[in-house]
Design a protein around this nucleic acid. Structure first.
Lengths: 224, 224
DNA sequence: GTCTATAAATGGATAGAC
DNA sequence: GTCTATCCATTTATAGAC
């Protein structure tokens, strides 16, 4: 109670921090960190790009590490708004998985996500806490959503999945695949939308053939 | 002709470069680049660790970029000695693929390879040439070896693979999977040997189920 | 009193030249 | 090895704005 009052008093005293400046700093820092990496980004450049003084920058974010943390946290939250997969249960097994896979691959290949991935991997050794945060906010949650979907689709008889967690991991691995690896290395040419769609479908094909559904055409042996 | 003579004259003039020093620099630079990344490694630290003066360093390697290139090239060559997969054709489909997969995953999870991967991904935006070199010397060649193996195993009737290049890509993706992703982010705990073996086997299981061989136990439907 | 901006300064590290 | 010119994160000085 008294600590809350003290905080209120302190907050009331003097000129309040300008949220516009904070947003401007965050935007500029995001751009520069993702473009140049943590070590390559200078506080001078960030302050200049944000149009604020360095003192303002420091008064809002403390130091470079904390600024980096805030940026990464905000990006993880921004990418972590998965729409519900409920509607996709009504589709055919193949169509449902292709839709999820396409969303997943589109996110992975988004240029900003690629840059974030690069920075996280490059800085993992020096910022282990943030690498963990990134992993939990990204791949771990989407794996949970996919395994949920597989569990329910399996209950509906679409296919037979014994271990939904394992199956979700394998689907994610197939979807990432070579296109994502090439993207993280910045290799040209980038895949065309048609190639991306083919990649997603090939992954779903493999998965469905392994789990007792041909997906595309009729079954080869005497399955129901 | 005259240019060759000039080169010989130049080579004879003065004290020849010491190959021991060059090796010492290369060793130290490898260690420091892989540990701290390109931007985090200083030429001072490398010279100190190699026990040479900075002038010696610069006279051998020109500048930081060229030194980095030499190191990466040497590492790629070092990792690029695949044993022949011929002997594995005599094994069962499942055993052959598990063996290849285990070698592949063991290489991917090797701490030095993980560090190289981190540096390459982190520096891809600023050294696109090297990222390409790395990709060609690494994943591209191993994909070629795996697709070769699949083509021959398929010809022997072990399983039915329509597109060996695609199948090799999918196998690599499955083998990399979550363990490699976690390793690049430095997440603990590292997988145990038992978990690695289970991961490889689960990948091979999925692949073989999709391609008309149960692998482990007897066939469910009326296959030969 | 606390925020902001400008500006300069501190203290350290850096790539590369001599 | 030393030197130089540059860059960096962070702090401090000075002044005006709420």
């Amino acid at each position: 109670m008294s600590s809350a009052e003290l905080r209120q008093q302190r907050a009331r005293r003097g000129r309040p921090p300008d949220p516009d400046k904070r947003r401007a700093i965050a935007r500029a820092a995001t751009r520069i960190f993702l473009a140049r990496g943590f070590q390559g980004a200078s506080m001078d450049a960030i302050a200049r790009a944000a149009g604020v003084s360095k003192l303002t920058l420091y008064s809002h974010f403390g130091d470079k590490d904390r600024l980096f943390q805030e940026i990464v946290r905000a990006r993880c939250d921004a990418y972590n708004r998965p729409e519900s997969y409920d509607a996709l249960l009504a589709l055919s097994p193949r169509a449902g998985l292709c839709r999820i896979g396409h969303n997943f691959v589109a996110l992975l290949l988004d240029p900003e996500v690629v840059r974030l991935h690069r920075v996280m991997v490059g800085e993992a050794a020096r910022h282990p806490k943030m690498a963990e945060l990134f992993f939990q906010a990204g791949p771990e949650r989407s794996a949970a959503h996919i395994s949920d979907f597989l569990r329910r689709a399996s209950a509906l008889g679409h296919y037979r999945v014994v271990d939904p967690e394992l199956a979700a991991e394998q689907l994610q691995s197939l979807w990432k695949g070579m296109p994502h690896f090439r993207a993280t290395l910045g290799l040209r040419p980038a895949p065309t939308p048609k190639q991306i769609a083919a990649h997603v479908e090939a992954s779903v094909d493999l998965f469905l053939r392994a789990h007792g559904s041909d997906g595309r055409r009729a079954r080869r042996s005497g399955h129901p």
